[in-house]
Every structure is written in structure tokens, then in C-alpha cells.
Amino acid sequence: MNGSESRAGPGGRSSTYVTFSLADETYAIDVLQVQEVLKVPDITPVPGVPDYILGIINLRGDVVTVIDARRRLGLPMREPDEASRIVIIDVDRQNIGILVDSVAEVVQIPEDAVDPAPAVGNEQTSRFILGVTSSGDGLTILIDLNKLLSDEEWTTLREL
């Protein structure tokens, strides 16, 4: 497949994704769930939450929970820097922030260019992967946000 192709073949469908980086890898999430992208503000810690939850921020009067995508995906921790961003996503009509290393671009990915998630990593992290696609820049890992935010700890926290 040619990585420069931006449209699906005849009758094929494509979806739009926001790409971001974590630990020198490219990830993508459905653009329809992305509300906005922010520079990293002060995050207020919340005691007694899972370690991947960094805390909360005030976003124009709304309290938004922020998770660390690196911790959630089992990647090595890193302190935020100038390139780090918080991607505000909408999950079940609730805004959630996800800390990422940097946000890259919005891309169209044809459905037929997405391969099933490979059996790599551990079951804990591989269940968050929707699929992978390759381009001239390497692999892009598609993240299933609903699975990323669906475990019992997270569901309990969202109900608080």
C-alpha cells in the first residue's frame, strides 16, 4: 500500500483520526470524540484513584478528569514538556483529558488499510488496540477509547 494515498478505493470507506505520539510511537483516536487539544495546565491530584489518573483540571468551569496515556498503556513514565498536550475527548457525554507526548495531525485512514491488532504486548494493553495501519512514516496504532476507559476502576470513578 502506498502511504501517500489519502482516499479509500472504489466504494471503500475511510475514517478521520487525530494522531499523537507516545514513547516515539504514533497512535490515533477517532476525531469525532475529540473536543479540543490543550497545553498542559496545572493538574490537581485526587487521592485514592488508580495510578494512571493524574487528577483533575478546571476547563471553563467544568471539572475534567485527566489520565496519563503512557501509564494506561503500560509505557514508561515521562514528565510533560513543551510539546505535551491534553486531548479532551467526549466519552458518554462526559469530557475526559488524556495526556500525550504531542499531537501530530488529523488524517483520513481507509477502513481497508487497517489491519487487526497484532498479538503483541500483554493482554492488559492489547485490548485497547482497535487495529494498526502503516504509512511511509511507519505504523499507526488505532486506540479504542471506549475500551481504554471501560474497566471497573474507571467506571466506578466516573460514577462519583
Rank of each mutant, 00 (worst) to 15 (best):
V64T: 14
S21D: 13
S21A: 08
T44E: 10
V63Y: 08
D24M: 01
I56S: 07
T19F: 03
T16I: 09
V46L: 03
I67Y: 02
V34A: 09
S21Y: 15
Y17K: 05
L54G: 02
G61P: 15
D68R: 08
D62K: 01
S14A: 14
D62Y: 15
Y52A: 02
D42I: 02
D68C: 09
G12Y: 01
A23I: 07
V46F: 00
F20T: 01
K39L: 07
T19A: 04
A28K: 12
I67C: 05
Y17G: 12
R60E: 14
T65S: 09
I56P: 06
S21T: 14
L32P: 06
P41C: 07
G55E: 05
S15F: 08
V18T: 06
V18I: 09
P10T: 13
G12E: 15
R60K: 04
I67S: 05
I53F: 03
V63G: 08
V34T: 07
L22A: 06
N58Q: 12
V64K: 03
V66K: 01
I56W: 03
V49T: 11
F20M: 02
V49P: 00
I57M: 06
V34C: 09
P50E: 03
T44N: 10
I57F: 04
P47L: 07
Q35H: 13
L38P: 12
D24C: 12
S14W: 01
P45S: 09
Y17A: 03
